[in-house]
Simulated scan of single mutants.
Amino acid sequence: MAAAAAAAAPILSHIARESSDIRRLANFYKEIFGFEEIETPDFGFNVIWLNLANAFSLHLIERSPETKLPEGPYSAVEPIREVSHISKGHHICISVANFDAFVGSLKEKGIETFQTAVPGRSIRQVFFFDPDGNGLEVASRDE
């Protein structure tokens, strides 16, 4: 019974993000994380599919001009652009093997970051925003 349950375990397929500039957002995720642009079906609206090998896909969907919601979660209530205040419940986390090199590359690109560590563990974390203000976390893999 346990083997059948393990075989049917769910896996993350994709995360969708709306943006008024999906090309800018796609270029950011390709440059920062190494996502690859993959073939996208014609849904009748603009969308770019990105894939992170052996992980998950990111679907960037062009925001309708009629949408009245703000462009990023940081502006949902008030404009909070301070990276140390990224919402606990609204971010994507990706882990990397060479944490220091990754953080160095963010600094070289002028991306503002906030670093911390998981209490009681050896995992380090860096938080930052994508160009639309979506919170991102990158965590070190257990060394």
Rank of each mutant, 00 (worst) to 15 (best):
A4S: 12
A4F: 08
A4D: 13
P10T: 01
I11M: 05
I11C: 08
L12Y: 02
I15Y: 01
E18Q: 15
E18D: 13
S19F: 03
S20M: 10
S20F: 09
D21R: 05
D21Y: 05
I22A: 05
F28E: 01
F28Q: 00
Y29L: 00
F33K: 01
G34Y: 00
G34W: 00
E36Q: 14
E37G: 06
T40A: 03
D42H: 14
F43T: 10
F43Y: 14
G44F: 01
V47M: 15
V47K: 13
A53Y: 12
N54V: 05
F56W: 08
S57L: 08
S57K: 14
E62Y: 09
S64R: 12
E66L: 13
E66W: 02
T67R: 13
K68S: 15
K68V: 15
L69A: 15
P70G: 05
S75W: 00
P79R: 11
R81D: 14
R81F: 14
E82C: 10
E82H: 12
V83Q: 09
S84P: 03
H85D: 13
H85G: 11
S87A: 12
K88H: 14
K88R: 14
H90S: 15
N98E: 15
N98G: 05
D100M: 02
F102M: 02
V103K: 07
G104Y: 00
L106E: 04
L106T: 05
K107P: 01
E108N: 13
I111V: 09
E112K: 15
Q115A: 13
G120Y: 02
S122A: 15
S122I: 09
I123M: 03
R124I: 02
Q125C: 02
F127M: 06
